[in-house]
Simulated assay, not measured.
Amino acid sequence: MTVIGVIGGGQLARMMIGPAIELGIELRVLAETELSSARDRATAIGDYRDVNTVLAFAAGVDVITFDHEHVPTDVLAAVEATGVPIHPRPSALAVAQDKIHMRRVLDELGLPVPIWAHAESSSAVDEFIAARGGRAVAKTPRGGYDGKGVAVITSSSDISHWLDRGPVLLEECVDFSRELAQLVARRPSGDTLTWPVIATIQSDGVCTEAVLPAPKASQRLIDEAAQ
């Protein structure tokens, strides 16, 4: 029986339990606390940032994955060096962890993104805002989710507390009618599987509803998304 180790015991790890049982896969979880959402499959309790804790956990599994994007990439690199495969790869996780790095990668791939900038000073922020019509979207490069670490700003003073901690990502404000999303899974072999396009409804920067299938999604849009 294949043994999958999940670093992190949150809701996503918990959601893996049922499908793992159906597929005949043993799921083991490195949970942060005994009260973690996936505690039913927690075979270890510990700090995912501690390399020795993670190495000890990984020694008993066939493959490693993770419940969240906060696992340090140097910890995963240490696991990978032992020969235990990690999916997604640490290099992919690095893109998800840092929004500025993500924008650079998307630019290199030639994918459409809003006009953006990496800013480290109040003057750089104000210059970007002035060039974008007096408003911009600011994001903390790391750690933001569910509306946290995101703000529509008109002045650098709006995010002075962020600038005190490090650089920020700035983006132009983009008018849009709705947000669509699609889940894509890829095997190490390169085979991919897509799920139906969904529409997400946001309230104050937080996704409060997901509608499947996305209303009024044309077949052309569905086919294009699947590409």
Rank of each mutant, 00 (worst) to 15 (best):
Leu93Asn: 01
Met102Asp: 09
Phe176Glu: 09
Glu22Val: 00
Thr73Asn: 02
Glu171Trp: 12
Cys173Trp: 13
Arg178Gln: 04
Glu32Met: 02
Leu76Glu: 01
Ala226Leu: 05
Leu221Arg: 11
Leu170Tyr: 02
Arg104Glu: 10
Thr194Phe: 06
Gln182Val: 05
Trp162Phe: 02
Asp67Ile: 03
Trp195Thr: 14
Pro19Val: 06
Gly133Ile: 07
Asp126Tyr: 04
Ala13Tyr: 13
Gly205Val: 15
Ile45Gly: 08
Trp116Glu: 12
Arg49Pro: 11
Ile201Leu: 14
Ala20Arg: 12
Ala138Trp: 10
Cys207His: 00
Ala13Arg: 08
Lys148Ser: 04
Pro188Trp: 08
Ser122Val: 07
Glu224Ala: 14
Ser177Lys: 15
Leu180Phe: 14
Val51Leu: 13
Glu120Leu: 05
Ile86Ser: 12
Gln219Lys: 15
Val211Glu: 06
Leu221Trp: 12
Met1Asp: 01
Ala217Gly: 05
Phe128Thr: 06
Ala225Arg: 06
Glu209Cys: 05
Gly46Thr: 08
Thr53Ala: 01
Val51Lys: 15
Leu27Glu: 00
Leu55Met: 09
Ala117Lys: 00
Asp126Asn: 07
Ala58Asp: 00
Ile159Lys: 03
Val29Arg: 00
Asp40Pro: 03
Val95Lys: 01
Val206Thr: 02
Ile21Met: 12
Val84Arg: 00
Ala20Asp: 03
Leu12Asp: 03
Thr43Phe: 03
Trp162Thr: 04
Ile64Asn: 15
Ile17Val: 06
Ile159Tyr: 14
Ala225Trp: 15
Ala136Gly: 05
Leu183Ser: 08
Ala124Lys: 05
Asp50Trp: 00
Ser177Arg: 14
Val184Met: 09
Thr73Trp: 08
Asp50Ser: 10
Arg41Met: 06
Ile86Leu: 08
Gly60Ala: 05
Gly133Cys: 00
Thr192Ile: 12
Ser121Tyr: 08
Asp126His: 01
Ile45Pro: 02
Ala131Lys: 06
Phe66Ala: 09
Ser189Asn: 09
Arg28His: 09
Ile198Tyr: 10
